[in-house]
Structure formats: structure tokens, C-alpha cells
Design a binder for these strands. Sequence first.
RNA 1: CGGGGCAUAGCUCAAUUGGCAGAGCGCUUGGUUCGGGACCAAGAGGUUCUGAGUUCAAGUCUCAGUGCCCCGACCA
Length: 595
Amino acid sequence: MPAAKLSSFFLPTLREAPSDADNVSAKLMLRSGMIRKVASGIYEWLPLGLRVLRKIEGIIREEMNAIGGQEVILPVVQPRALWDETARWGVYGKELLRLKDRKDGEFCFAPTAEEVVTDLVRREIRSWRQLPLMLYQIGLKFRDEIRPRFGVMRSREFLMKDAYSFHAGEEDVNRYYGEVVGAYKKIFNRCGLNFRPVEAQSGAIGGSFSHEFMVLAETGEETIVSCADPKCGYAANIERAEASRPEDAGRGASSADDPNFKKPEDIRTPGLHTVEEVADFLHESPKRFLKTQLYVLQGKPVMALLRGDHQLNEAKLAAHLGAPDIRRAGEEEYVKFLGCPVGFAGPQGHPDVPIHADFAALGVLNGVTGANKNDFHTIHINNPRDFKIAGSADLRMTTPDDPCPRCGGKIEWHKGIEVGHAFKLGTKYSQAMGATYLDKSQNPQPAVMGCYGIGVGRTVAAAIEQNHDANGIRWPAAIAPFHAVLIVLDEAEDSRVREAAEKLRGELPRAGLEILEDDREGSPGVKFKDADLIGIPLRVVLSKKSLDRGGAELKLRSAPQPEIAPIAECLPRSLSLLGLPAKEAAAITPEVSKL
RNA sequence: CGGGGCAUAGCUCAAUUGGCAGAGCGCUUGGUUCGGGACCAAGAGGUUCUGAGUUCAAGUCUCAGUGCCCCGACCA
């Protein structure tokens, strides 16, 4: 492929970002002419941005194919009937964009494709001999997000790779799940990203069969915790991270007449609702507090009990209760079930309200808690003398003080952007939709499924969040829209430059190096600024000055200083600077090269 | 869905008490420049989001609508 000419390349760069761009990657993608916004959460991908998308797609395809994935295209407009079979038409809510055809038939714009792919498989798969089967697609999805933001990172229409695997039996899906996780690691490594696979919240199902792939970036929306010891390797989304169980939690089993128990006493605490306010007022540590949070499950109250300095993890409570549909009680419900306003509730005196305690709450001796009446708190409350516990579990958010739940070592906190997700589905969909195969003894069995997503557009944005500086983007070579930008100066007035330029134009693209030549009229400064902005990893400058110094100037976007290479050496030197062996450079982006 | 804000040239933004629609950047043409967003000159470019109202007069005030952004609960 010959070098692309910037003078005719559709690359509308902006000196200033549109004012509605709300994070670094969105600003840079808009400024560098990769994307434009059409409506809230809906974007156009321009040629430069598309090239990056295609590179990531190419890497994904190779790695998906390598583990036996087969690419398909599934419909974006899907009939209601399929979504009714799994009840998701009703469950999905407003995020599912619904539409009608001319005959009033109901459809939705696909946010994901479990129903459609399961339908396909149930119609075509008969025998265990046809399994396992892994189908994937890379296509646009639509989720009618309440609040789209951060450019393509949280948009309504987005490009996603979604993959679905079908297996004869639990064991096989477990094995294959590991292969997918391995493939995902390769994908994000090849993209040049610093990432972590973490255990993810898998709701009431539990287990470790949901992983998220997080690109580490300070601007990330997700918080992840990971063990500082790489040998341990524990890493989890904060929503799921296990909290340690304090040693004194065993106290929960002490008898009702423990000699250490002091006599309860009510204290007036007018207008003090929060643990912090009351702790200040009483000069007590929040660790001595018992904090209650009331939830409603099918119309009945459930109380969560925490130590005063801890935060409840709602998902853990839901999983512990085996009830995904719990909700927080409102003000009126506090009064109705506990007889006091929020902020003054305590666990004592509610024999009809089941109390589920976090392990850490079990260790609170002579605790402070609400008195169940307005403007009063009670001190010296003890379990089991003053209240009874229906169950105890890890119910809280982990804190920076918590040790690693696996090895007890130090835990690190990071911000991350979720770019991939792997999930073991089991037979949820195959059972609901009757996707069965005949096993070796002629018994019909529901296929066991896994599903695996990668946000392709989001990966582009995440790569920028992780790789940029004050001047613009700094693409990792493997996903850069071009490998190098060529800038020729003084060509009109210097025949040596002209000669060398012709040579470079002919030679550089030969080994598969993708070159963008900035052949626009204008001062060098403008070209340098734009080259930095769009983040091409290597800049090749040819000028009178560079020739006088012995050749052309090669400068990595990430390097402070350029180097001079003789014209004949420019190609091999460029490849080595980019870390791309000649063969690989040619092979790395077959998709893009054909564009 | 609740709370707040914004809407003027391609982009970023001005416009005093209600009184002629503006600047910088970008764009076009000519000229001078040419290694980090150069300079001079002349231009093009506007339904001031839409609709109604108040007024001699509305970008500005009122009402309604639309779009967008921010803060919270939902999410690849």
C-alpha cells in the first residue's frame, strides 16, 4: 500500500475540543478527527478512528479464531418473540430500545445476542458430537443508556465483540472459559495495554466464573483491588472484592451473660443522624458503632448490620439472601417497620425483623447504635444479649486497610476501565429456549453456555486514556492508525531532498509499514503539532537540515529526542524502533492494509 | 427518573440598562514566510435552538417545547 496523503485524507483536526467533550479520550478523539458526535451517545467514526477500530478487531479475530471461534453476523434488529422466551423483554427495562415494523410487529435493537444465538444453535445442533461450538461477532449494539458520557466509552450505540460458547457439560465450559481468559489476555497484551483481569460480580450465582478485563487508568470509572504480590494474583472488582474477616468476629458466639457486657443506656443525640456525627459527639471511634440498614424483600423488612466504619455492599447482601430483587427501604418504611426515622435505628427490639450481620459487626463489644426513637442513641449494645442474628456473612465493601483475602498480603487499589467481560452462563438460556443436544446415552441435555464480550470502541478510548500526554495521543504501535508519519520539508528548492523523498516514499511502505505523508502546504510547526495530536508512533522528517546531518530524522512519539538514520537505513531502523519485525509488520494488519 | 446548568459563525467564546450581530482560531484569495499551531491585506461565513408573548425596539425579558451538558441510582 502506498503512503496515504494527508492533503486528501479526511482528517478534520480541531485546535480546541468541543465544549461538551467530557474526558481526555473523548476530547482527543474529537480533536484528532477520529470521531464526531451525531446525538447524545451516538457517534460517527471517521477514517482515522476506523483504522484503529479495525486494528483492534483484527487482533480480536485472530485470537478468537485461535481458540476455535467462528465469526458470524447476527441481526441488530431482533424479534420480541425470542426475548419473551427468556422473559428478558420484560426484565431489560428502558435500556432496551424497542421498535415496531410496518405491521406493528415488535422488535428491539440488540443490546446483546444471547437469545438470537441460542435460537440459532437450538435449530441446528442435535448431537454432542457438534459441541463445543463457539460463535462470535463484531457488530454494533444499542443500549439506551440513561446518561451517555465520556465519548465512545459510555455511548448508546457501540461496537462490541460478543462471543457465545456451547458445551456438552459443565466441565467443558469450565475448561473453555479458561481458554477464553487466556485469549483475552493475549488480545489486550497485543493491543499494548496495561490491564488486569479481575473477578467480577456475578450476582446471586456466586463463584469465580465472571471476569472483567480492566484497563488501568486514573480516569477509570471502576475501582479494582489486587494483591501486591504477583505470585498471589488475587484481583477483583471492588463490587465483588472479599473483605477480610476480623479475628474478633468469633465473639458473635459468646453467651448472653458475657461478664464484659455493660448495661445499655440511652443518650440524647438530637439531630445527629450519621455515624460520624454521633461518633464526634460521643468521642467514640466509628468502629465501636453498629450501623443498621433496612432493606425490603417482597414487602418484608430485612436488616443489614455493619460496623460503623464500614459500607454495605448491596450485591453481597443480595447474594447472601439469594434475592436479587431487594431494595433499600424508604423513610416511611423505616418508620413503619422500626418505628423511628433513618439514623436512629438499632438492631435491638425487632424480633420480627431478620438481622443479617457482616462478620466485622459481630466483633463489636458494647457498641453504640440507634435507640429506635428519634434523637436518641443507645450505648453498650451487645450480641446476643440485646438482639439475635438470622445470619452472618461478608456483606461489606472492602477498605484500603483490608489485607488480601487470599494470602493476607498488601492490597493495591487501582482505577480501571472495563473493556472485556467473560461470563459463565450455565444453562439459563439453553433451558429457557430449549437448546438441547443428545448426549452419548441418547438423553437430551441443555447446552452449557458461556458468553464473552469486548467493547471495541471502548478499548480505543481506554487505550487513549492510558496513552496520552499534553500534546495528544500516543498510540501503541499495534493499534496505531498508521505506523509512521512522513514529513518532507524543503522539497521544492532542494534536489537532494526531492531525490531522497522519492526513495523514502517508495521504500518505507514496502515491509507493510503504514505511512501517512503530511503533504499539506503549510509550516512545519502545524504538521508537527498534528502528528503529535493524532499520535502516530513514529515521525520521519526529511529536510535539507536532516540530510546535512546524514539522512532522515526518526523520532518516536514517546521519545524526547530524534535520531538521524541514513536514507537506506530508514526502513529497518523504523521497524526496529517500532518493535515490529519486518514480517510481522506486514502481517499485523491485513485488514487495514486492504482498506 | 429526580436536582442543576447551557444553547450566538465550522471550533472556543463575547455582546454593558432591552438599542446597528462581534472577537480569536479555522476557511477562501493574494503576498511575505517556512524545524514546533508565523505575518500582512482583502474576503466568505448567522433562522442568535424552535414556537408564541411583552415592547417603539428582544441574542438579552416571559411562557412552552426541543437538544445538549453536569450531579445521583443503572451499565460492554
